[in-house]
Simulated scan of single mutants.
Amino acid sequence: IHGYENLPVEDSMNVVVVPEQPELKATELVRNSLVGAGFIETISHTLVSDQAASPFLESGRSSLRVNDERAGGEPILRPSVLPSLLEVARRNRDRAGCIVRAFEIAAVFDEAGEEHRERQMLGLLMDGSADADPAEQYRSLRGCVEELSHILLGDRRALVCTPDPEGRASWLAPGAQIALDDRPLGTMGLLRTQIAGQFDARGPIAVAELELRPLLDRYPPMRQPEPLPSFPSIERDLSVLLAESTDWEKVAQTVRGAGDELLESVQFLTTWRGKRVGPDRKSVTLRLQFRDGSRTLRHEEVDPQVESITRALVEQLGGEIPS
C-alpha cells in the first residue's frame, strides 16, 4: 500500500455494551450516600509516621516499614485509614477553621509474624467542635453506617453493631464492633481523648472503619418477591421512657419476645430527649404491626398483645409509659 488514500476505511463500527460491574456500582453508591450526608472524599498518602500509626494497631499485629530514605519521617505503611483522616481534619481545622466530615477508601497494611495483610477499608470521620455532643456525634455516624448496610445488603441482611467490652479497638472509648454474619468487619466509636489530642482536636471525634471487600462481594443484594398480604394489618404506636444506655436492639428483642405470631414487625420511629424526660433518659417511639394471614384482625384481639409488650418493656428494661 502506498499513500494514506489507499488505507481501507470501514464505514461502520461495532459497539458492544458492557454490562454494569457490581463492584464499581456498589462503590459509587457508597460515595454518593456519604457525600449526600455531608462527607467529603479524601485521597491521602499511604505512608504515615510511626507516632501516627502505632495507636491504631490491633493487638498482636505490628506495622510494616518501608526501607527507603525518601520516606523521611513517614516510613510506615498505614495500618488504618484513620490517622490520614485525622491529619486532614487537623489541617482543615487549623488553616480554614472548618469542622469536616471526611471519608476515604484505601488499602491498609499490617503483619503478624511472617503474615502480611492488606485490606481495602472505608474510613469515616466526623470532627466535632468544642461544644459538640459526643452522643449525637456517635448516633449520626452510626446512622451513616446503617444506611450503607441497607444500600449494600438490602433488607434481609444487615451489619450488626455490638459493644466492644474487650477493647480490641484500643483507640476508641467507647467503641463498638461491626460484624456481618458474626464475622467482624470493622469498628466504630468515639476517638480516645489522648489520641484526639495528638491531632489537636477541639471536641469529640467520631470515627468508623469498615472492610469493604466482603460487602462489595455481596452486592447487589438478592431480592425475593413476596405475595401481597390478603388481609389488612393493625398498627399501634407506642412510646416508652428508657435509660439512655438502652439500645434499640434490646428494645426490639424485648418486643418480639413478648409478642406472639400476630406481631408481624416492630419499627423504630423516633427518639426524643429533653428536660421533660430527665437526665440520662430518652423517649423512644416505635410502631407495632399486627396481621393474621387468614382473616381480618379485630382491635380487641390486638389489645392484649400491646399490654403484654408494654409490661415487658417496663419489667425487663425498666421502662416507663408516659401518661
Rank of each mutant, 00 (worst) to 15 (best):
H2W: 12
H2I: 14
S12Q: 10
V17D: 12
V18F: 10
P19I: 08
L24C: 01
A26S: 01
A26W: 04
V30A: 06
S33H: 03
F39D: 05
F39H: 07
T42A: 03
S44D: 15
V48G: 03
Q51R: 07
A53L: 05
A53C: 02
P55D: 09
F56K: 03
F56A: 08
E58K: 00
R61G: 00
R61W: 09
R65H: 14
R65M: 15
G72M: 10
G73A: 12
P75N: 13
L77Y: 13
P79M: 08
E87G: 05
R90H: 11
N92I: 00
G97P: 07
I99K: 01
A102K: 00
A102N: 02
F103A: 04
D110E: 04
E114K: 07
E114T: 11
E115Y: 03
R117W: 00
E118V: 14
Q120P: 00
G123F: 08
D133M: 05
P134I: 11
P134R: 12
Y138V: 05
Y138I: 07
S140C: 09
S140Q: 12
R142A: 15
G143Y: 02
V145P: 00
E146V: 06
E146D: 13
E147D: 07
E147H: 05
L148E: 08
S149T: 02
H150I: 01
R157P: 02
R157K: 08
L159H: 01
P163T: 12
P163Q: 07
P165T: 13
E166W: 04
R168K: 08
S170Q: 15
A179D: 13
R183K: 14
P184S: 07
P184G: 04
G186A: 09
L191I: 10
L191A: 06
P204F: 11
A208C: 08
A208Y: 08
E209C: 06
L210P: 10
L215N: 02
L216T: 14
D217S: 14
P221A: 14
M222I: 12
P229H: 00
S230V: 02
F231Y: 15
R236K: 14
L242Y: 01
A243D: 15
A252S: 15
A258L: 09
L262T: 13
L263Y: 09
T270W: 11
W272A: 02
R273L: 13
K275M: 10
D280C: 00
D292L: 01
R295K: 13
E300I: 05
V302R: 05
D303Y: 06
P304D: 11
A312F: 08
E315A: 02
G318L: 03
S323F: 04
